[in-house]
Design a protein around this nucleic acid. Sequence first.
DNA 1: TGCCAGGCCGGGT
DNA 2: ACCCGGCATGGC
Length: 221
Amino acid sequence: MTLIPRRKRPFSKYLTKVYTTLIESFGPQGWWPGETPFEIMVGAVLTQNTNWLNASRAIDNIKAAGLLDPKKLLCNQRKVPHLVKPSGFYRLKSKRLLAWCDYFVAKYQANVKKMKKRNLGSLRDELLTIKGIGKETADSILLYALDRPVFVVDAYTRRIFSRHGYFDYDAPYDKIRLLFEHNLPRKSKIYNEFHALLVKLGKTRCKKNEPLCSTCSLQHI
DNA sequence: TGCCAGGCCGGGT
DNA sequence: ACCCGGCATGGC
């Protein structure tokens, strides 16, 4: 992997410019779209390589069944594949969701406050040992459900910034994450908004010659 | 109609 | 240390 700055502007200044431009254009996003920490955790698993609309339909199914609770899901395991079907990969995701519930209940009695007390680095390592929880999912949970300062790297982040020449699309996840974390204030609020804005930008269809475009990608910045 | 979406795992080289 | 196939639905 290479981190080749093809542009001369320092990454930190560039990031500030992108962030302020996105805020001005789209406004604060107020992510994550989930009411409770557990709902956010569920969403993080179900949206893996899947559009949010389909993931949200699966969450709606779980809510409608009155099972949006880790212990209840564990007690109704056979219902889970059917409930999460709209999110795709449903046999796989039902296992991943239950693996998460298993961990959350066994280790923290489904108590978010207990989890938040843990040291961030060791907690992240612990999450990554759970089958079905990779780096992006773990970081989404840490940032959006637990309010910890971790920058979430996703496909949009890679696409937008690699097009601007700051790193290769295929650069290792943690290299990219640290590049952002080292060039932004260490504040979960900032990481939260920034990631949400990048997703918003990434979903916005190309409008040629405008400052904000996910294909041409912020050409004028 | 085909392509794609807010990844991750396991097996092979 | 990479590379790749598999996993599956619904929107556009």
